[in-house]
Amino acid sequence: MPDQPFADLFRDTEHLSWAPTAQVRERGRRRTRQTRIAAALAAVVAVAVVATGAVALAGGREGAPTPVLPATGSPTPSPAPSATSAAPRPSTTSTTPAAPPSSPSRTPSAGSTDPAIPAAAMLRLSDLPAGFTMAEDDIDGDWSLESVSIYCREAPTGTSNGRLAQRTVSFDSPTDRMIQRVVRFSIRDAALEMDAVRALFTDCKPRGATSSMSVLADGLGAGDESLLVGSDIEGVRSRWLVVRQGDLVAQVALDMDTTPKEARRYARPVAQRLCAGSDTC
C-alpha cells in the first residue's frame, strides 16, 4: 500500500490538466529573459548612482570654502590723540644774527662760461711805451717759455695742460719785440699751470755748464698770481712775465734784460685786461 502523503498528492493531481511541454518551455524562456533584463537594469542603475555620487562628492570638495583659522590675537586700538599733541606748535624765528657778507675773494671758484678769449682781454698799444705797433696773427718761432724745457737734462712736468682756448698778439718796435699769449683753462688747471711754470724754472738742470734758469720774482702785485722767470741758455738770455687772473693765464715775452721792477709795470695792465675775458674779477 502506498504511503499516505503520496496517496494525497496523487488524489489532488489526478484531475489536473497539464500545459503542453512547448508552452512550459516558452514560459521558462520568458521568465529567464525577464530576469536577465531586470538584472541588467539594476546594474545600469547602480552604475549611474555611483557616478552621480562621485560627481556630487567632487563638486562638494571644490566648492567648499577654505576654513578660516581663528585669529590668535585682537588688534590693539591706537590711542586717541591728546589735546596736547594735536595742538600746532608755535613757529619760532632764530635769533642768531646772520653772518656779515664776506669780502669778495680774488680766488674764484668757477671760470667763464664762454671759452673764447675776446680781444679786449689782450694788451693794447696804450699799455706800452711809444713806438710799438700791433700785429695780431699766428706767431712763429720758439718764443714761449715752454721751449726752454728741451735744454733740461730731465724736464719737469710739462705746462699748458687742459687748454680750452688761446689768443696771441705781438708788438714790434724798431728796437724790441713783445709777444703775448693768453690761454683759458679751468680754474684748477690755471692754478696748476702756474705751479708748473715755477717747477720748470726751479727744478730744471740745464745741459750746458754755463746755462741757468730761475724764478726772478714771484708776486708782482697783479692778478691772482704773477711771476717773472728767466733763462740764460749758452749766453742767450730771455725773460717772461706770467700772470693769472681766474681761469686765464697770460704769458708775455719781454726784453732779455727786464728787471722785476720793470716787469711789475707791465703786470698790472696785463691783469686788468684779463678781467675783460674772465668773470672772476
Results as ranks from 00 to 15, higher is better:
residue 117 I to A: 00
residue 123 L to H: 00
residue 159 T to P: 03
residue 160 S to N: 15
residue 138 D to V: 06
residue 155 A to Y: 04
residue 149 S to Q: 10
residue 146 E to A: 14
residue 153 R to Y: 06
residue 117 I to G: 02
residue 162 G to M: 00
residue 165 A to V: 04
residue 119 A to C: 02
residue 150 I to D: 14
residue 126 S to H: 10
residue 157 T to F: 07
residue 151 Y to G: 15
residue 130 A to G: 12
residue 152 C to N: 10
residue 135 A to Y: 06
residue 132 F to L: 06
residue 145 L to V: 05
residue 142 D to V: 10
residue 164 L to C: 02
residue 167 R to F: 09
residue 167 R to N: 03
residue 152 C to M: 08
residue 118 P to W: 00
residue 130 A to R: 12
residue 159 T to M: 06
residue 160 S to W: 12
residue 134 M to N: 10
residue 140 D to P: 07
residue 156 P to N: 13
residue 134 M to F: 09
residue 133 T to S: 05
residue 136 E to P: 09
residue 129 P to Y: 04
residue 162 G to F: 03
residue 163 R to T: 09
residue 145 L to H: 07
residue 131 G to I: 00
residue 153 R to Q: 08
residue 135 A to E: 11
residue 121 A to D: 01
residue 136 E to K: 05
residue 123 L to E: 00
residue 121 A to E: 01
residue 148 V to I: 14
residue 121 A to M: 00
residue 167 R to E: 00
residue 153 R to W: 07
residue 153 R to D: 14
residue 165 A to E: 04
residue 120 A to H: 05
residue 125 L to K: 06
residue 162 G to K: 12
residue 164 L to R: 06
residue 119 A to H: 04
residue 121 A to P: 04
residue 136 E to N: 06
residue 123 L to M: 07
residue 125 L to A: 01
residue 165 A to Q: 03
residue 155 A to M: 09
residue 143 W to R: 02
residue 149 S to M: 08
residue 159 T to R: 11
residue 158 G to L: 09
residue 157 T to S: 12
residue 143 W to N: 02
residue 147 S to L: 11
residue 156 P to M: 07
residue 142 D to H: 15
residue 151 Y to R: 11
residue 139 I to Q: 13
residue 161 N to S: 10
residue 164 L to N: 01
residue 146 E to M: 10
residue 164 L to H: 01
residue 122 M to W: 05
residue 142 D to K: 07
residue 160 S to Y: 12
residue 120 A to F: 10
residue 129 P to I: 05
residue 159 T to N: 06
residue 130 A to N: 12
residue 129 P to T: 13
residue 167 R to A: 02
residue 151 Y to P: 08
residue 155 A to F: 03
residue 164 L to F: 05
residue 154 E to H: 09
residue 145 L to W: 06
residue 159 T to A: 08
